[in-house]
Design a protein around this nucleic acid. Sequence first.
DNA 1: AGGCGGGCCCAACCGATCGTTGTGGCTCGC
DNA 2: GCGAGCCACAACGATCGGTTGGGCCCGCCT
Lengths: 308, 308
Amino acid sequence: MRSFVLAAERGQLQQAADELGITQQAVSKRIAALERELGVRLFARTARGVEPTLDGQAFLAHARGIVTAVERAGSAIRPESRAPRIDVLGYRLGQAVVLHEYWGAHPGTELDVVVLKVDDPQQAVAAVRAGEVDASFRTVTDLQTLPAEVRMLHLLDFPMELLVGPKHPLFPVRTLTPEQLRGHRIWVPGIAPRSEWGEFYAELARDLELRIDGTGPNFGVEPLLDTLADSAEVATLTGARDRLIWPANHGLRRIPVTNPTIAYPVSIIFREPDPHPGIRPVIDHFRSLATLSGDIWRPSWARASSGS
Amino acid sequence: MRSFVLAAERGQLQQAADELGITQQAVSKRIAALERELGVRLFARTARGVEPTLDGQAFLAHARGIVTAVERAGSAIRPESRAPRIDVLGYRLGQAVVLHEYWGAHPGTELDVVVLKVDDPQQAVAAVRAGEVDASFRTVTDLQTLPAEVRMLHLLDFPMELLVGPKHPLFPVRTLTPEQLRGHRIWVPGIAPRSEWGEFYAELARDLELRIDGTGPNFGVEPLLDTLADSAEVATLTGARDRLIWPANHGLRRIPVTNPTIAYPVSIIFREPDPHPGIRPVIDHFRSLATLSGDIWRPSWARASSGS
DNA sequence: AGGCGGGCCCAACCGATCGTTGTGGCTCGC
DNA sequence: GCGAGCCACAACGATCGGTTGGGCCCGCCT
């Protein structure tokens, strides 16, 4: 195939052979095989080379497409040249939203955004270490467990907001404090035991004495929103930039929480000796965003001063 | 490649192997070779089959595109399934214009329109006979020379019109007869000696005593139009449906010729035992168009009653 | 006109590749 | 705990794809 395209472009099998680093006879046999397979004569042989027949011209367009497709496929998948592959906790979370903004603001940037089907951050670390992904927006709560070749960097914090339906008593409130939340049932279905968000909610409930209910199966976002929209008792917490209530907002309302602001910390995990070159700009973009100020509650692992 | 796509779809090498008619081990080796070449693990091997890794998923999209591209390339070029390839005298002539209308009126129809680089209609006949093209809009003036496997059918006639510039004395005329043309210089550059249009103009000049000048090299349509636009003496003849003066009309005007109408006959040449199935609808479309009536001049070879 | 050079095809040979059969290890389910 | 199902590895044979060597054809130059 490649031989055919080259020969058609150069007009001589000899030159195509030189280009490919093989002999002219080999190219001749390749073309002959192609012609035999298609049942069609692709080249008219002349005294000074070859010239595509009508069939050859028609085939040339297809052949060009195929060889470039093969090249693109190779470079899209080869580890040293592929687009950076980044694991996010979920496509609708603030981290993914910001990543999407970054992608939209930088035309031509290739990104491969995936969601690893693991809950335990340690498995994400293993994936980064193995090169399965180039970075992961997850957080390990115990930095001691990080292997040497993997690094974690704190990027920013997303403030949590209360998501409530119109029947809920807190619905009319424009802003509230954790103290006002005390006693209200906050429903976060499907908390996995060893996941980072599981630990986050556990610490949050303990420190601020909130009533966070993680029971019940997680059927996804939409059933959760349906329940909230109808309930006078249940509300949930969500990151300010999470894309939860769009396009159908179910009549729900977000209420900012302050004094203290509840911060969900976002970190990135990547290989430290020679990370993928596409990762550094992503880090810079996240770090360039304004961070929180004032009275802030953070989970224990995010209270240490963040490294550079 | 094909093995990879099949294996990814079926989820098992075994099933892919069955589909391909080879053994499971062969598929395994193919995948392994692909993985070695790309330097990437494409499948995670489980107890009940295989599952694409993230790299495999990314590659799968490309691989699908490639295999379908290869299939399309094959069927687009294989003689028994390819689109009908039709030779026209030129892309701007009425025959090509009508063919384009036919294509536009029948969505989904595939056509491969080409211009054989030959003047002698006999060479076009040879191309049809050899299967290089499926049909040719050319005319052989001596039906005796047609080989048995090739058939020619008269389709319709295009009335010729005079094309003149604003300085020409005939420019204001709205319609004219060949008699009025007598003495005026009609320039048709680049008449090839054995071509059908050469014979057409030769007979036309002789029968109607016109002054047709075929001298001078043919630099294409645009220089001819430029000359006409500036000249007070030179005009040319063109088919009524030829696409000569669009989009830039150079201020030229077409003048119909009647009493007699000068008819340029259009024929189609094709293989008679099993012609390409796409040819018959083309013939029907051309024959469905209204034909000329009244006083008509035709070249000698078109005067016999046309066959069915 | 004859020789020459460039380009392609054909033939023979040879190594690598791709397929097969046979076997073993692994996981899942009964 | 054992069998069923699936994949990987090993050895072997046929086919494929490459090289070398030779020949033919065509255009060009002397």
